[in-house]
Deep mutational scan, measured.
Amino acid sequence: MEVRTIKVFTTVDNINLHTQVVDMSMTYGQQFGPTYLDGADVTKIKPHNSHEGKTFYVLPNDDTLRVEAFEYYHTTDPSFLGRYMSALNHTKKWKYPQVNGLTSIKWADNNCYLATALLTLQQIELKFNPPALQDAYYRARAGEAANFCALILAYCNKTVGELGDVRETMSYLFQHANLDSCKRVLNVVCKTCGQQQTTLKGVEAVMYMGTLSYEQFKKGVQIPCTCGKQATKYLVQQESPFVMMSAPPAQYELKHGTFTCASEYTGNYQCGHYKHITSKETLYCIDGALLTKSSEYKGPITDVFYKENSYTTTIK
């Protein structure tokens, strides 16, 4: 009895394709271990004539594949690729409408935090270190965002349907971005203890939790000093293409032309909904596939993004 075979390709990165001759009487799992086709788990399936010449994702289970996976995804987590594939199996079914010149995501599976993050990423200057993220990001900007969303979920250790947080998501993504040249110098002034300067680099240099107003941050924000008295913390120097200011959701007025974009969060910790506000020729609110415009805006804002380049204080 002759062994019926077909020729397929296996890959971990969709760049390096490895030619395989597979036995049609055995499952993919018996031949390769966990195997995925377009995100779908085909591990328990036997090869079919229609699979001839198709590319299958496999887990990096030998040295060659491990090197290829690390170079593309910059992670050695053995569960990463499987999590990416199972997320992709959902995100490829989502709709990605162009809204006001940006790629958004039609609401499904509690994905409003991903839509808000995706919209924000198209408006701030950011370059990702893992080629996987950078490639998928370019495709997302062009309207094909399924891979990018699935990668975000995998890097953030999230599953489809789980509630997510924009600030946490951005923080994970910033860790995989090139923020080497970003720098922030802060000064804390206390009447009792004097003053202390701190220099922050990388992710810490672009994120701040405690106030939404970048102007206020430049002037000074009140913080408790270690001595128990009130101290003032203010920005001395900022070198970065953008800054992200966050605070627990509270009524906040966004003035046209003073910011790049913002995240609105309605609801409580267990259950809520994100919308995205962007400042173009007027203010726009993007909620999944829905767009509304207004000249002014007041609502429960939790993150505001500002364009920056270089700032030095005039406070002496």
Results as ranks from 00 to 15, higher is better:
K127H: 11
K218I: 03
N49E: 09
A262G: 07
A154I: 01
Y311T: 13
Y265D: 07
F217Q: 04
V12M: 12
S171F: 15
A231W: 02
A69P: 02
H90K: 13
H256M: 13
I152L: 11
Y72Q: 10
F242Y: 00
Q98P: 08
C285W: 14
S240D: 02
K44T: 12
H51Q: 08
T314L: 15
A117H: 04
L153P: 05
P97K: 10
G29L: 06
T75I: 10
E168V: 12
Y155T: 03
N16I: 00
N147H: 13
I45A: 12
N268H: 15
T27M: 13
Q196F: 13
S213K: 01
L212H: 08
L173P: 03
T27A: 13
N61I: 12
T91W: 02
S25W: 02
T258R: 08
A87C: 14
L133G: 01
Y274M: 07
S294I: 15
K46F: 10
R141H: 10
P224A: 12
P241S: 08
R184T: 05
T169Q: 04
E168N: 13
Y208I: 00
N268R: 15
G82Y: 13
C227F: 01
T312G: 08
D77V: 04
C193L: 04
T302F: 00
G257H: 08
I45R: 09
L65H: 06
A132G: 09
A146Y: 06
P97I: 12
T116V: 14
A117N: 00
V3W: 11
F148C: 05
R139Y: 10
L119N: 02
L186D: 03
T232F: 05
Q216T: 09
Y172C: 14
L291I: 13
T75H: 04
V22P: 10
C227E: 02
A250Q: 15
M209W: 15
S263L: 06
P60C: 06
T55D: 04
G288C: 04
A40C: 13
Y269V: 15
N157D: 08
T226N: 10
Q237E: 09
I45S: 13
L126P: 07
P248Q: 11
V8K: 05
A115Q: 10
N129A: 11
K255G: 09
C261N: 00
G161R: 07
Y57V: 12
E52V: 11
K92N: 10
Y57C: 09
N111Q: 00
F242W: 13
L200E: 00
S240H: 11
T27E: 12
K46T: 12
F56I: 11
W107R: 09
A115M: 13
Q270E: 15
S181C: 07
L126M: 05
N61A: 12
E52D: 13
A115F: 08
Y172D: 08
G228I: 02
G39P: 04
R139P: 05
L88F: 06
C271V: 11
Q237T: 08
Y28V: 02
N16R: 10
A108Q: 08
F305V: 00
Y208M: 06
L254T: 00
Y208T: 05
L59E: 14
K93Y: 05
L291N: 09
A145T: 03
D13L: 08
Q230N: 08
D165F: 11
G53W: 12
T192C: 09
E68S: 07
D13M: 10
V42A: 11
V206F: 01
L118C: 06
R4V: 13
L151G: 03
L179P: 09
Y172K: 14
D135N: 06
I286C: 04
M245H: 05
L37Y: 13
D287A: 03
P97H: 06
Q238F: 02
D13S: 07
L173N: 03
Q270N: 13
I286T: 15
V67H: 12
V243Q: 03
Q216N: 10
T266F: 01
L37K: 11
S263F: 03
I15Q: 09
F80W: 05
T314R: 15
T116F: 00
L119V: 11
D41F: 07
E68Q: 09
T211D: 01
G194C: 07
A108F: 05
Q238M: 02
R167D: 04
Y36L: 05
K183R: 12
N100S: 13
L179S: 06
D13G: 05
K46L: 14
Y265K: 01
G210I: 00
Y214L: 07
S294C: 14
L163I: 04
I45D: 13
L290H: 15
V21L: 13
M209V: 15
F259I: 06
H273V: 07
N187H: 09
I315N: 15
Q134P: 02
K191W: 04
Y274F: 14
E308P: 09
Y28C: 05
E308M: 05
L59T: 11
P131C: 03
N49W: 12
E215T: 07
H256S: 09
S171A: 13
A108I: 07
Y84S: 04
T116M: 04
L291R: 04
K183A: 06
Y265S: 01
Y265L: 03
T169N: 02
I152M: 12
H256L: 15
L121D: 02
F9L: 11
F217M: 07
T5A: 14
A289G: 11
P60G: 06
K229W: 05
G257D: 13
V236R: 02
H18N: 09
S171C: 14
T19H: 12
G101M: 11
V3R: 10
T211C: 12
T11N: 02
E68V: 08
I105K: 07
F259S: 04
E168L: 09
D135I: 06
Y311I: 07
Y155L: 05
G272A: 00
T192Y: 10
N187K: 15
T159F: 09
F305E: 04
T192M: 07
L121H: 04
V58G: 09
T258Q: 13
L173Q: 03
K183C: 08
G202P: 01
D41L: 10
N129E: 10
P224V: 14
P97F: 11
N187A: 12
A289I: 09
L59C: 13
K191D: 15
S279Y: 00
V160S: 00
C149H: 03
V166Y: 10
H176Q: 12
K106N: 00
L37P: 04
Q134Y: 05
P78R: 01
S310C: 06
A146C: 10
I15Y: 15
A177F: 01
L235D: 01
P60E: 06
T19C: 11
I15G: 00
K95Y: 14
H51L: 04
Y274N: 04
R184G: 09
C193G: 01
A87M: 05
L81F: 10
A87L: 07
D63F: 10
K255E: 13
T312N: 08
Y57M: 11
L114V: 06
M26S: 13
Y172W: 09
Y311S: 07
T75P: 05
V236H: 05
K7S: 13
R167K: 03
T11C: 03
K218E: 03
L151K: 00
D41C: 12
R83S: 07
R141K: 15
I124N: 01
Q237Y: 14
S240K: 01
K293W: 09
A205F: 03
L65A: 10
D135R: 08
I45N: 14
N187P: 02
T10A: 08
F128G: 01
K298S: 14
K201H: 15
K54Y: 13
S263G: 00
S246P: 01
T313W: 13
L59Q: 07
M170R: 01
V12I: 15
Q134R: 12
F80V: 04
M170F: 07
N14T: 15
M209K: 04
W94V: 10
A136T: 06
C190V: 01
L37S: 12
T103A: 07
K307G: 05
Y297Q: 03
S79K: 02
P47T: 04
T192V: 10
T169R: 03
V185G: 00
Q20G: 11
T199S: 08
G267Q: 15
F259G: 00
C190Q: 01
Q237G: 04
A247N: 10
V188L: 09
A154M: 09
T282K: 09
S246T: 00
L290M: 13
K95H: 15
D38E: 13
Y96L: 06
L37V: 10
G228M: 06
D38Y: 09
A146D: 06
R141A: 09
Y208D: 05
L37I: 12
N147M: 09
M245R: 04
L151C: 02
Y73S: 06
A145S: 04
T198W: 11
S104L: 08
Q31G: 09
K44I: 15
F242A: 05
T103E: 03
Q122D: 06
L235M: 03
E239I: 13
G257S: 06
Q122A: 03
G53F: 09
Q251L: 12
G53S: 11
E264V: 15
M26T: 15
A145P: 11
N129G: 06
T198M: 14
A142W: 08
A132P: 02
